[in-house]
Amino acid sequence: MAHDNIGYLVAEVTCRRMPDGKLSDHELVEATQKGDEAAFAEIMSRYRSPITNYLYRFLNDYEEAVDLAQETFVRVYFALDRYHTQYAFSTYIYRIATNLAISEIRKRKRRKLLSLTGLFQGEEDSSLEFQPPDDRALPDEELVEDERSEMIGRAIAALPEKYRVPVILRDVEGRSYDEVAEIMQLGLGTTKSRISRGRALLKEKLQNYL
């Protein structure tokens, strides 16, 4: 395979280390810019999980979320030469992921408009996906938990984009208000206001789970 030639798995991280032994994001980016593939592997290991989780909560579709998370890293890799270190790398990568997710949502809307089969599907059916039968005997608690998680996921995915992004970043991903504001390129007050409004909308839908 092509990536075998890269040999990033055996490459050494060539930049200096922080006192705790870990490299900062900026140092990893600089090392990647110099051709250190192991540094990029480290970036991926740090962010693949949060980015995948973030996109999953945004799209409520695991396969799509994984696909877009991979696309996010590809874009980051090819755009590293344009990256400025005065901004936090996490802000940068979340912004790319957010833009991709918003594009995907818009594509879905267009597809839904064009789809003739959509005329025959109900509102509830549109978000359902095929799930193979699970033969395991699940305890009731787990069933309830799964249902609760499913309902919360749907409620989040039903939020308007401008509320969904900050609510997920703040309440699911645990990003600070400042960071959310930077990712969304909005003022702090506007960001807090949107989060508050998004939570209020969710509260209306999730009364049974509060």
Binding site: H3, S49, T52, A65, Q70, S149, I168, L202
Partner: peptide, 24 residues
């Protein structure tokens, strides 16, 4: 809501995630 969303299970990427990114 902040507390409720904080309790949601986190999804993990598949194990071949890095390889797929490299392939792309």
């Amino acid at each position: 809501i902040h507390r409720l969303l904080g309790t949601l299970k986190r999804v993990e990427p598949p194990k071949d995630f890095d390889l797929r990114v490299r392939a792309r």
